[in-house]
């Protein structure tokens, strides 16, 4: 059986908020390393991979591998009943048809108990190879979100170029064009506010802004985001949490 307790409900609430517009139904795979999820969007253009590691739980017990088939819209409805500061306990049997969620406030005088019906989901899993990326950019997640939103008002696509000059996001649309260039600028006092660029080779790729704007819904998970790029392969965007991560992969647009 599974029993997993989070000190703060906000962790799972933020993860679900971050991915629910990308995927609808997905398996939460529970095993002795924690709770993991991998799911593609319907068009097979984007993929989300999530891992909440056991270290992030106040209590974690999972005797055997359990797949919790969850509709994320339904899960979000139940999670609305949890206050951010509530302790959350997830429980499921070995072959569950429901997930039990218990929310307790810090004063220990309110216990909310919910059951969420589970589904059988036959999900395709992709093998994602270890990749040495040509360029890796670490920057404030809020700034990346702002750039994606601003450029998405002008165009459907963004060209991302990483050179030794910096990283340039540019787009061209019906009303005009726009570009934002970030130069390496490490912040010694507050590393989460700095921008660092590791460049192995120049990279130039084009991506759909609709997906990037969607990924930025994970900005609440981390002050920083890491963008990894190589020519002609999917980009990787990672939001690292204290004990886990949410990663997004996006296939590039080529030759248009």
């Amino acid at each position: 059986m599974l029993e997993a307790r989070l000190e703060q409900s906000s962790v799972l609430k933020k993860v679900v908020d971050a991915i629910k517009d990308l995927v609808q139904d997905c398996n939460f795979d529970c095993n002795d390393s924690g709770i993991q999820l991998q799911a593609m969007d319907n068009s097979h253009v984007a993929l989300v991979a999530m891992h909440l590691k056991t270290e992030g739980f106040a209590l974690y017990r999972c005797d055997r591998n359990i797949a919790l088939g969850i509709n994320l819209v339904s899960l979000q409805k139940v999670l609305r009943a949890a206050q951010n500061e509530d302790v959350m306990t997830l429980k499921a049997e070995d072959s569950p048809d429901a997930l039990s969620l218990v929310f307790e406030n810090s004063e220990n005088d309110r216990i909310s108990e919910y059951d969420l019906k589970l589904m059988d989901i036959d999900q395709e899993h992709l093998g994602i190879p270890e990749t040495e990326y040509g360029a890796t950019v670490k920057m404030p997640s809020a700034e990346f979100q702002r750039i994606c939103r601003d450029l998405s008002l002008l165009s459907e696509s963004v060209a991302i170029e990483a050179t030794k000059e910096g990283i340039k996001f540019s787009c061209t649309g019906d009303i005009g064009k726009g570009a934002v260039t970030l130069r390496q600028n490490p912040n010694v006092e507050k590393p989460e506010l700095g921008t660092t660029i590791e460049l192995q080779e120049p990279v130039a790729l084009t991506f759909s802004l609709k997906y990037l704007v969607n990924f930025c819904k994970a900005s609440g998970l981390s002050n920083t985001v890491t963008i990894s790029l190589s020519n002609e392969v999917p980009l990787l965007i990672e939001y690292e949490m204290e004990h886990g991560y949410v990663r997004f992969y996006l296939a590039p647009k080529i030759g248009d």
Binding site: V45, L47, E124, H125, L126
Partner: peptide, 14 residues
């Protein structure tokens, strides 16, 4: 959309 690749052309199914 034109030129939009899918992940299936890069990553294999497990």
């Amino acid at each position: 959309p034109s030129g939009q690749k899918t992940l299936l052309s890069f990553f294999g199914l497990k």
